[in-house]
Design a protein around this nucleic acid. Structure first.
Lengths: 210, 210
DNA sequence: AGCGATTATGGAAGTGACTACCATATGACG
DNA sequence: CGTCATATGGTAGTCACTTCCATAATCGCT
């Protein structure tokens, strides 16, 4: 690795950090990209080479946490899918718990600014889509695992990825809302017990006469 | 209802329709709001009184379908939650199936334009949040339904809403991707069978040693 | 019908995110 | 040291979106 990439990563982090400072101080709407660029001592056009939109500056940390866990998952093909997904959930929550203030601020900014919440939702969706893709390849690979009666593999994969995403979202949301002190991974465990135990009201397959 | 509200609804629809035309013709990025306003024969400032962003013009139909079903759900407090949620799923899919081209175009535009997919994700999220709120009040009301051992009501509600949203999303996605002809409600039924039958690899509650 | 109050509309002016482009500088490599 | 690839900064421009005000359409009441 050359000196070039080191500098690149440094600049990248510097920009995101300065941006986050300004956002927490003056708020998202009252901060211009010029101000961020000036604070990071780069030109605005340089800033846009690192981050495509102002919103992505807010989401840097969350995005990183999610995709790190996904990368880990891809490198663990020997694990069973349930164990692998469990590892994904744990890794994401570990990242979040390592920096509670940042996560909290992200959610606050998302709550105040529609475009931020939109981009947050988008990042999580893209993550889920990549997880779906990975699950699809794995399910097709060892389809001996389960007969998968009738249902197509991508369909099953999408459902699994969606539920995993849900568990993470619900857990993080609850963890952020609570006055700190709660254990995120304990919450996630509860969520999964509920899922397996059937304690959740699901839509029924049989249509009722309406 | 006065003449005023009739006109308002007419203008609202007119704007969305003209916008959709232009988007399908020239694409989202190559259409300016001025062009849309001109096509609908209103001033740009009027357009912004009806739609807060250009992206929401794309999502008008999807948004309407989702929230109509939610309104219906709110008006059916006598139904059990599973039946009610089933009704929600059915109603959303009915709406989508009533206008396949429009849904397909929305997904195409979302696939091409990041900001559209971001707003699409956001709309669906807001919908899920409102569904969560409704489920929370209902679960607290008749908590005699189930003991809900230990788990908090909003937690359970959020999971239920999330899964319902997942079923809809996965179903619509699969239905849109397929070369037409597939029955969306049949797909949804499969999804729910998979969910109930445990045919989906979920993260395990017990952490494995990593 | 007529009249005051309320609300919808159109236009003008401005802010700021984002893009395209080019000249320059800086690290990579023989 | 020379060259080459890449990173940077600045400029100019487009366009989404906001704010504000003057005007016009509708409503409610008598």
């Amino acid at each position: 690795m050359g000196l070039r990439e080191v500098k690149r990563e440094r600049t990248r982090q510097l920009i995101a950090d300065k941006a986050f400072e300004l956002f927490t101080d003056r708020g998202f709407g009252r901060t211009t990209v010029e101000q961020i660029a000036a604070a990071a001592e780069v030109g605005p056009s340089t800033l846009y080479r690192y981050y495509p939109t102002k919103e992505r500056l807010v989401l840097e940390f969350v995005e990183g946490s999610l995709f790190e866990a996904l990368d880990w998952f891809r490198e663990q093909p020997q694990l069973s899918l349930p164990d692998g997904l469990q590892g994904v959930v744990e890794r994401v929550l570990d990242q979040m718990e390592s920096n509670p203030d940042r996560v909290r601020t992200v959610y606050e900014l998302a709550g105040q600014t529609p475009s931020v919440s939109a981009h947050l939702a988008d990042v999580i969706w893209r993550w889920r889509d990549e997880l779906t893709a990975e699950l699809t390849t794995r399910l097709t690979a060892d389809s001996s695992d389960q007969p998968l009666a009738g249902a197509s593999v991508p369909f099953t994969a999408a459902l699994a990825a969606g539920i995993t995403m849900n568990v993470i979202e619900v857990t993080v949301q609850t963890w952020v809302d609570n006055p700190a002190g709660t254990d995120a991974k304990e919450l996630a465990r509860e969520a999964m017990c509920l899922l397996r135990g059937g304690g959740i009201p699901l839509p029924t397959a049989d249509p009722t006469q309406l």
